[in-house]
């Protein structure tokens, strides 16, 4: 790489890079078109847009549930388009996801749901009990650890989903409308949770159509989707105006 190249233009130091990404389901028209953006480690992003704009579709590309129809996606310094299928699980383990519909395993307790990412990663059972118990306490569910998802309220399920998403200390946290069905008070509490994680170095991407949320995290960057196209009028996503210093110090924590 030539020394005079702008590191941010080339995407150096980025954690996620989308280049001209398009996505269509089956033979329909594209639901995402010409998506270009770069995410930097330790930043906090909001993904906004009306219902049906393509937020969930974009996040699905981000958490490797789907390959795009065209374009290039680089994450963690690897071209994931050409990466063979059997190497993708290792990348998925570096990404925490809060699904829009939580996606808890119905026949597992809150504890076992939260422990799942650790067990998938092969963490020994002796090193699972305490972190999971701590995490459940952190989201205020230490009394409910043996409860099945069906006996938990919507807000409690959401907190289990969030605990599961962050238990393995992911480098990227993706949350799809995590405040969708909860009261404003809880929404704010969850947002503080994401901020705390962000301060520990995790890159956070939160999809929401709640514009009030955006103002609660002043240092966040905003990606707006409009009918499958990403509007980036100031170019802030492709060419971030300033390096994110907080992130670099936080990574060492």
């Amino acid at each position: 790489m030539p020394p005079f190249a702008s590191p941010r233009v080339s995407g150096e130091g980025s954690i996620v890079q989308f280049d001209n990404v398009g996505l269509r389901y089956g033979t329909d028209r594209e639901v995402l078109s010409d998506i270009c953006f770069t995410l930097y480690p330790g930043s906090f992003y909001f993904l906004t847009g009306a219902s049906g704009a393509g937020k969930t579709s974009l996040l699905r590309l981000l958490y490797l549930a789907q390959r795009p129809s065209r374009g290039v996606i680089r994450m963690f310094g690897t071209d994931l388009i050409t990466e063979p299928r059997h190497r993708l699980p290792a990348f998925r383990r570096r990404i925490g996801v809060v699904f829009q519909d939580f996606r808890l395993v119905p026949h597992l307790s809150a504890f076992d749901n939260v422990a799942l990412p650790l067990r998938v990663s092969g963490v020994p059972e002796s090193e699972i009990r305490k972190p999971v118990a701590d995490m459940l306490e952190w989201v205020g569910l230490d009394q409910r650890s043996e409860a099945r998802p069906a006996s938990l309220s919507g807000g409690e399920q959401q907190r289990v989903a969030i605990a599961r998403a962050v238990i393995a200390r992911p480098e990227v946290l993706v949350a799809d409308e995590p405040t969708g069905n909860v009261d404003p008070e809880l929404a704010l509490k969850l947002l503080r949770l994401f901020e705390a994680l962000n301060r520990l170095g995790t890159t956070v991407v939160v999809a929401t159509h709640d514009l009030h949320l955006l103002r609660k995290v002043p240092e966040s960057l905003i990606m707006r989707l409009d009918r499958g196209r990403l509007s980036d009028p100031t170019g802030a996503l492709r060419y971030p105006p300033r390096p994110i210093e907080r992130a670099t110090e936080a990574v060492d924590v």
């Binding site: 958490y63 059997h86 290792a90 998925r92 996606r103 395993v105 119905p106 990412p117 998938v120």
Partner: peptide, 16 residues
């Protein structure tokens, strides 16, 4: 299917 998809998305390998 739901459970399988969840484990898959959490980074579970096909073998697991």
């Amino acid at each position: 299917r739901e459970t399988i998809e969840i484990v898959h998305l959490l980074g579970g390998t096909d073998a697991q």
